[in-house]
Each structure stands twice: as structure tokens, then as C-alpha cells.
């Protein structure tokens, strides 16, 4: 525990104010090591995505301490922060601008990070995520869901970040495409030495990609456990056990 890539202490996130205030995350604390892949699971409304959004700076109302890649986070994110931390969103149909080609999306991302010779970098970046050069000038509506998600991953990788925040990156995709994207994420992590935080409702997906997993319920982290413990169903918290049970039951055929 020398210098974790991500260190979250006592994070509270809320929406609204006064009587309309609803607490999405309460007193969440966890740390993610450099190069580790950390999963957050929970059901809808458990606040798992909100944690990612708070780290990324998309939710302004939070309190607590967040240190990411050696930088203590305040209310505003610096440009340097976005060079180190990037995010992949859940729905590839909603995360790409409908009127922009792949080329435009990627070159703008690179331009914003002040990279040079964009024209030669784009084909390399596309190759990294398994997209051939023929996709370069297509609009999102000319791409399938899996191809769109590859573009979204390429956009996140445009500035060679150290940390990727993955918000259910495969939940909108078919299982066979999900397998392709999960394999891609595995490869990218190995090749680029990335640190992941992945949010998902699917224990199978999180168990595949992550080493440690936090289980969330109603805004609180109820348990953090190793994936090995999870595989052997050695959860101490009753909610985690219930979650494991239903997940295993629905994935095991009759």
C-alpha cells in the first residue's frame, strides 16, 4: 500500500439539496493499486456508477477525500487529470456524437490533449482497439454496437491515460460481442499497463476482469473481497451471498 493509484476516503455523493436531497453514495472508502483492476458491483440505484462519475468530475456535489494518480481532487479537474484518467460509458449508442465520424472523434480527442502528427496516430490507435482502417470515416450509425464501443475505448485511450473508469462497458452488448470487448480490455491492460475501475451489475463480467471487488448496496460499500473468495462463495456479508446466489443460479443452466 505504498502509493495507490486511486485512494478514496469517506466519499459522500448526493443530489439535490434540502428536503429533496438524496444520498447516492455514503461513506465509501477504497484504494486501487497501480495496475490493479478493481470492480464495483451492485444493483441499479446502488450508487456504483455515481462513484465513477464523482471521480471523473461529472458530479459536483460530493465530500470526502479522493486522490487519483497522485493528485488530490478538488471541485475542478485539471487538464493534466484528464490525461491520466479516462472513462468508457455504458451505452455505446449514446456516447458517440451522432454527427461525427470516427476520425473526427479521435482527432478531436488527440487535439485537445495537444498531441502532434494526429493523422498517423489515428490508424495506430484504431488498430489497438481492433478496428480496421476502413472504419475511420464512418458515422456512428454505420457501426455496430461492438464497433461503437471500440471507438469509445479508442477515444479514452487517445491520450494514453494510466487509469480507465469503465461504467458497465458491455451491458448494452450481445454476449458474443461482450466477450470480444472483455478480451480487448484484458489485452489493453496488459499492453499499456492500465489500472481499471469497472462498474457492473454482472458478477460474471466483474469476476472475469477484476482482482478485487467491492459490493455496494444502497450507496454503501458492504464488502470488499478478492475474486478468489468470490469464486469459492466465501462472502461474509449476507447481501453479497444473496447476490452471488442469484447470479450463479441464473448462469447455471438447468
Amino acid at each position: 500500500m505504498t502509493n495507490p493509484a486511486i485512494d478514496i476516503q469517506d466519499l459522500d455523493v448526493w443530489f439535490g439539496a434540502g428536503r429533496g436531497r438524496s444520498d447516492a453514495v455514503r461513506q465509501a472508502s477504497f484504494a486501487v493499486e497501480q495496475g490493479e483492476s478493481f470492480g464495483i458491483v451492485g444493483e441499479s440505484g446502488s450508487g456504483k456508477s455515481t462513484i465513477l462519475r464523482a471521480i471523473a468530475g461529472l458530479v459536483p456535489t460530493w465530500s470526502g477525500n479522493m486522490t487519483v494518480a497522485g493528485e488530490a481532487l478538488g471541485p475542478q479537474r485539471s487538464k493534466a487529470f484528464f490525461r491520466k484518467v479516462q472513462m468508457v460509458f455504458q451505452d455505446p449508442y449514446a456516447s458517440l456524437h451522432p454527427r461525427q465520424t470516427v476520425d473526427r472523434v479521435l482527432s478531436e480527442a488527440m487535439g485537445l490533449h495537444g498531441l502532434k502528427d494526429i493523422d498517423s496516430r489515428i490508424p495506430r490507435l484504431m488498430e489497438d482497439v481492433g478496428l480496421g482502417p476502413s472504419f475511420r470515416f464512418r458515422f456512428p450509425h454505420q457501426l455496430s454496437g461492438g464497433q461503437r464501443q471500440r471507438v469509445a475505448i479508442a477515444r479514452a485511450l487517445a491520450c494514453s491515460p494510466q487509469i480507465l473508469l469503465l461504467d458497465e462497458p458491455t451491458s448494452a452488448l450481445d454476449v458474443s460481442v461482450q466477450a470480444e470487448i472483455l478480451n480487448l480490455l484484458t489485452d489493453l491492460r496488459r499492453d499499456h499497463g492500465l489500472t481499471y475501475i469497472m462498474v457492473s451489475h454482472d458478477l460474471g463480467v466483474v469476476g472475469h476482469l477484476c482482482e478485487r471487488i467491492a459490493v455496494m448496496k444502497q450507496g454503501r460499500i458492504v464488502e470488499v473481497l478478492d475474486v478468489e473468495m468470490m469464486r469459492h462463495l466465501e462472502a461474509s456479508d449476507p447481501y453479497t451471498r444473496q447476490l452471488l446466489d442469484s447470479s450463479i443460479q441464473s448462469s447455471r443452466s438447468a
Binding site: Q178, A179, L182, G204, G207, H208, M230, R231, S251
Partner: peptide
């Protein structure tokens, strides 16, 4: 193609 919690690959 489905990732299986009990039988990791």
C-alpha cells in the same frame, strides 16, 4: 462467450 464466475478463463 459468457464469462463464468465459477470457471474462470
Amino acid at each position: 462467450a459468457v464469462p463464468d464466475l465459477e470457471h474462470p478463463r
